[in-house]
């Protein structure tokens, strides 16, 4: 078994200390940081995401795998920076104004990170002004809005409208999701993408960033 396969195996079973140790070992062996990231960490997280999408694993398994990936990335980060490896894209994410729920948003955030995207997490109860300002500040390709409540969903429309007003609508895609959100609702508020689960959201976000 190659060291990448070992990293992948331990990441998939959520063994953070072991992943950390193996990533350090790979660095010490002189392997390329980008290769460690892509063939060890991100590919493993993709497998977890695919399994999640097929209902073969459940949220806690995804979360412990994401924690293991984060542990590996922390070891790797200085080496990635030194070798000039960039993120695959930047996403601004938050739960919309008036809504304090964060589990879905946090899960999506972890799946985004598992695809190698930089995620700017604005937290919960985020005003449209904050979504747009942070997207501008970080030159994000995507604004991702989450809502659990039917009563706060309309805030997504305000984000879309403000992005248009502020002149960033052509450069940023707007993704929406959350328990009551549907494809029809996404279209009705003028957002670009709706995905029903975190794994699909991550795939969609990666495709958006790679297409830009």
């Amino acid at each position: 078994m190659s060291i990448f396969e070992e990293i992948s195996s331990f990441l998939q079973s959520g063994r953070a200390p072991k992943v950390k140790e193996l990533v350090q070992q790979a660095i010490d062996e002189g392997l390329e940081p980008k290769q460690i990231l892509e063939e060890g960490l991100l590919s493993a997280m993709s497998i977890v995401g695919d399994k999640f999408k097929r209902n073969e694993v459940f949220v806690p398994e995804v979360l412990v795998a994401a924690r293991a990936m984060k542990a590996g990335v922390e070891v790797l980060r200085p080496h990635l920076v030194a070798s000039g490896v960039e993120n695959k894209g930047t996403v601004v994410i938050g739960t919309v104004k008036g809504d304090l729920h964060d589990i879905g948003k946090n899960l999506v955030k972890m799946m985004f990170e598992g695809k190698g995207l930089e995620v700017i997490d604005l937290g919960v109860d985020v005003a449209p002004e904050t979504f747009v300002a942070k997207a501008k500040e970080h030159n994000a390709q995507i604004i991702c809005c989450s809502a659990l409540l039917t009563t706060t969903m309309p805030e997504m429309k305000n984000v879309v409208e403000l992005a248009e007003k502020e002149g960033i609508r052509d450069s940023v895609k707007i993704m929406v999701g959350g328990a009551p959100v549907t494809k029809e609702f996404c279209e009705s508020v003028g957002a670009d993408y709706y995905t029903p689960d975190a794994a699909s959201a991550a795939e969609t976000a990666l495709n958006i960033c790679l297409a830009k």
Binding site: V59, H101, I103, N106
Partner: peptide, 16 residues
């Protein structure tokens, strides 16, 4: 119950 977003990782680790 399902934990909140702030605690969900630690909670998941405890499950295992």
């Amino acid at each position: 119950a399902i934990p909140d977003g702030a605690n969900m990782v630690d909670f998941s680790v405890r499950l295992y």
